[in-house]
Design a protein around this nucleic acid. Structure first.
Lengths: 338, 338
DNA sequence: ACAGGCGTTGTTATCGATAACATAAACGGG
DNA sequence: CCCGTTTATGTTATCGATAACAACGCCTGT
C-alpha cells in the first residue's frame, strides 16, 4: 500500500508485467509488434501503479517531440482561433501536439517566442505573417524544420506559405464600392505599424483609391492595434465629426466595423442609407449584426487546415520544394453596404 | 563554411569557446557562477554555430520542464483568453511556459487531453471547471504537481481553486430583476449539459426563481454549447413566438444575449422598453452594443493572475495546504435592463 | 523433415544537458 | 603572509525511453 516516493518509470511497469522495458516501450506505441495479450497486461500494470509516459525521455532518445510550434498574434481573436483549430484538427491525426505562443502583434516579442519555441525542438513551425526581425528569420532558416508563414504572401518566403494578400483583398472591396458609384471612402485602422496585416490593408486601400483616381485622405487612426470595438466606435465618431460627407468606411476588422456601426446607431446615422460600413474577417458578428456587415472572408479555418496538410506532406517526404498556397478571400456583400 | 549535418550541441559550443560543456550549460542559466567574459564568449560561439538549447535533454536530466499545463474549453472565447493572459503574464516572470490544450467543452476530451499534457511533465496544471471524469480526477490527484481548478467552486476540489459559483452569480441577477418588479423571466442556454458552467447558470436561474416564488418554466434551449450569437438569435425568436409576454431574458453568455438583442431589432421589439436582456461574461460587445447589455463580470483576467500567483507560491513552498480563492463576480446593470 | 520467413521479445548503448562532487584560482582579514 | 572563504570551472555519472541489433519460437511450403 506504500506509494513509491518517485514517479514510476517504464522499468517499474516492466517489472510488474514481467517483461523487459523495451516491450513496455513498444506497448505504448502504435504499429509495433507486441502481442495483444502482452500489451493489455502492460497497460493494466501501468494503470495499476499510475505510470504516466515521460515524453522528455522519449524525445531525447528518439529525437521526435511530436510538437508543432505555432505563433499567433493573439489568442483572443476568432480568426486566429479558427486557423488554430484547422491546424489542431489536421495535426492530431498524426499525434502531433501544438505548442502555442502569442506575439501580441510585436515582431520583437515574436523573436523571443520563436527562440523559446525552437528550444523545444518542434517538428515544424507555423508563424502568422511574413514580416520578421532579421534574427527571427535566421533562426527559422537554420532550424532545419518545415516553416510555414500564414495570413500573408511574403515577397521572400522563408519556407512554405499559406496565405493571401491583405492589400489585394481590400483593393477588391474598394473597387466594388467605386463600381457602385461611391467616391468619398474612408478607412479606419490602428495608429501604428505593429499589426502588419492591418498596415497592408491600409496600404491596399490607399493604392486602390489612387488606382481609381480618388483621394485616399480619409484615414482615421484609432489606437494601438489590434483595434477594439470601442476604438472603432471612437474613430467613427471622429470621422462623422470631421468628414460628415463620407459615403462609406472600410474598417481594418469586423470588430472595429461593428464599433463604428454602433456609433452610427447612437447618433441616429442610418446604415446603409447615410453611410456604408465594411469590415474584414467575416467574424460571426458581421453576419448577426443589424444591419449585417459587409466584409471579407479570408477562410481562416482553411488556412490552418492547409498548413497542417502541408506539414504532414513535408514530414512524410511527399513534398520536397517550398510551396506557396494561395487562399482567395471572398467579398461578402451584406446590408451595411446596399 | 561547411554546415555540420547534425544540430550542434553544447559540446560543440564548448569546443569552440574552449571551455567544458558544463560551463556552457551554466552560461545559459541565470544566477549561476560564470564570469561575464566567459559567458559572452560562450554566447558568441553559440550564436556563431547556430546552437539552440535543447530543452528535452535539459528536462530529462534536471526533472524540470518549465511547463505549466492549462486546459480551457475553447480558445475562441474572450473570457478564457483573458484568463490565459493572466496566467501567461503571471508565469512568464519565472520562465514558465504554458502548454495549452482545449477540451471543446467535453469532459471526455478533457480526459484525453489531461493525459497527453501530463506526459510532458508540467510543473503544475490548471483546468477550467470542477467537473471531471473519474479517471481525469485520478490522473490529476496522482500527478504529484499543484492542480488548480478555475471558473467554478467544486464541492470536492482536487487541489487548489480559483473561481466563483456560476449559480450564485445568476441568482444575483434574478434577484435584481425581481426586486425591480419583474416576474416573467426567461433563460436562454444550450440544449445539453456539456458546458457545465452553462448548466450551473441555468440551475442557478431555476433555483433563484423558485426561491422568489416564481415559475421557472421559460427555459429556451438553443443548440450545442457553447451557443453562438446566431443560436441566441434563434432562441429569442422562439421565445418571442411562444411566450410573448416575457418581461426579461437572461442568457447564458453575452454572445447569445447579443444575438437575442439583434433578433429583437429585426422584429422591432424594443429593448429595454418591451423586454429586458442580460448576458454573462462582460465581453466587450456587452459594453459597446446599442443598447449596452446588462451582464455579469467574472473578472477572467484576475482568475488567471491569481492562479499564476498561487502556483508560484506553491512551487516555492510558501503555500502548503490546498487553497480556495473566491472571485466575486460583479453585476453590471446597463441600458438593456432599465 | 528442414530452410526460410515472420512476429515477438530481449540486450546494449545512447540521445544531450546537468546534479553532485571535486578542484583550482582569487580574495580578504587579522 | 597564511588560511578560511568565495568564485569559477572541470569531471563523472545519470535522467528514462528507445534505436539498432540479436535471438528465439512458430508457421509454412516443398
Amino acid at each position: 500500500m506504500t506509494q513509491p516516493r518517485k514517479t514510476p518509470t517504464m522499468a517499474d511497469v516492466a517489472r510488474l508485467a514481467g517483461v523487459s522495458p523495451m516491450t513496455v516501450s513498444r506497448a505504448f506505441k502504435r504499429d509495433t509488434s507486441v502481442s495483444e495479450a502482452t500489451r493489455e497486461a502492460i497497460l493494466k500494470a501501468a494503470e495499476e501503479i499510475g505510470y504516466v509516459f515521460d515524453s522528455a525521455a522519449s524525445s531525447l532518445r528518439s529525437q521526435r517531440t511530436d510538437f508543432v510550434a505555432v505563433t499567433i498574434p493573439s489568442i483572443n481573436n476568432a480568426n486566429f482561433a479558427e486557423t488554430l483549430r484547422g491546424l489542431t484538427e489536421g495535426l492530431k491525426v498524426r499525434g502531433l501536439q501544438i505548442l502555442l505562443g502569442y506575439t501580441d502583434y510585436d515582431i520583437h516579442e515574436e523573436e523571443r517566442l520563436v527562440e523559446q519555441l525552437l528550444r523545444r525542438r518542434p517538428e515544424a513551425i507555423v508563424v502568422t505573417g511574413g514580416k520578421h526581425t532579421p534574427r527571427t528569420r535566421r533562426l527559422l532558416e537554420n532550424a532545419g524544420i518545415p516553416v510555414v508563414e500564414t495570413w500573408d504572401l511574403p515577397e521572400a518566403p522563408i519556407g512554405h506559405v499559406v496565405g493571401f494578400s491583405n492589400a489585394d483583398a481590400v483593393r477588391g472591396m474598394v473597387d466594388h464600392f467605386v463600381a457602385r458609384g461611391l467616391t468619398r471612402i474612408a478607412f479606419i485602422g490602428g495608429d501604428a505599424d505593429r499589426d502588419t496585416r492591418g498596415t497592408d490593408r491600409r496600404e491596399g486601400f490607399v493604392a486602390a483609391m489612387q488606382a481609381n483616381g480618388l483621394e485616399a485622405t480619409r484615414l482615421i487612426a484609432a489606437g494601438a492595434p489590434p483595434i477594439s470595438m470601442r476604438e472603432g466606435a471612437d474613430a467613427m465618431g471622429r470621422l462623422l465629426d470631421s468628414l460628415p460627407d463620407t459615403q462609406a468606411v472600410i474598417c481594418v476588422s469586423d470588430l472595429s466595423a461593428f464599433g463604428a456601426l454602433t456609433e452610427c446607431q447612437r447618433r441616429g446615422v442610418r446604415v446603409p442609407e447615410d453611410i456604408w460600413i465594411a469590415g474584414f474577417g467575416d467574424y460571426e458578428i458581421a453576419e448577426v449584426a443589424v444591419p449585417a456587415l459587409t466584409t471579407i472572408n479570408p477562410f481562416p479555418r482553411e488556412i490552418g487546415a492547409k498548413a497542417a496538410a502541408l506539414i504532414l506532406e513535408v514530414l512524410d517526404g511527399r513534398q520536397a520544394g517550398p510551396v506557396t498556397l494561395r487562399i482567395a478571400p471572398e467579398l461578402m456583400i451584406r446590408q451595411s453596404s446596399r
